[in-house]
Amino acid sequence: MSSKFDAPKVAEIHQHLHSHLPSESALRVKALETLLVDKGLVNPQTIDAWIEAYTDQIGPKRGARVVAKAWTDSAYKKRLLQDAPAAIDELGYLGKATAHLKVVENSDRVHNLVVCTLCSCYPFSILGIAPAWYKAAAYRSRAVREPRAVLAEFGVDIDDDVEVRVWDSTAELRYLVLPQCPPGAAGMSEEDLAALVTRNSMIGTDRNLG
């Protein structure tokens, strides 16, 4: 029987014993939160409420309601295109991330696509947390360079005579696409129309709804 110290084996046992130890990143976040709470710089209830809101409540349905209202109420649509934050505030959805927002409208001749080339600026107060692809370097770099190819990857083929406009979001100005109302939607209720609006159509990686 060998009495040799088996370092890898000991490490494995140690790892197993302490497998409930959080990851390095989780420990660093815990450290930050503790320090900030101790100094009175954040309230732990605020953090918990934020996480609950963005996990369960705040998502693209808010944006879909804004779009459906614009489809059914031309006066609202006009206000939305002129001053999006004020129009969104009418529905009670205004947040810091929508305080500086511009709504860009799709038409038969124009398709709008939104990206944040620098980081991941996104109107999360009305669309929720940005999808993984929106935050990927591949999307951030390619959306401007080759928007039609990116759109094709999402299954959106844009006719050559349709202009593709790419909007680069910043912390100071974010964008929401107002997609076209699907044909045959006349007479539908605002609620039923909202159900047709996809998250991607409000970012521009979806076009023909219904």
Binding site: P22, S23, S25, A26, V29, K30, L32, E33, L36, L41, V42, T46, I47, W50, I51, Y54, T55, K96, I129
Partner: peptide
């Protein structure tokens, strides 16, 4: 993972 939500929540709160 939960820490990702916590980090973003702290950033937005600050």
């Amino acid at each position: 993972e939960p820490w990702q939500a916590e980090a973003l929540a702290i950033a937005d709160t600050l």
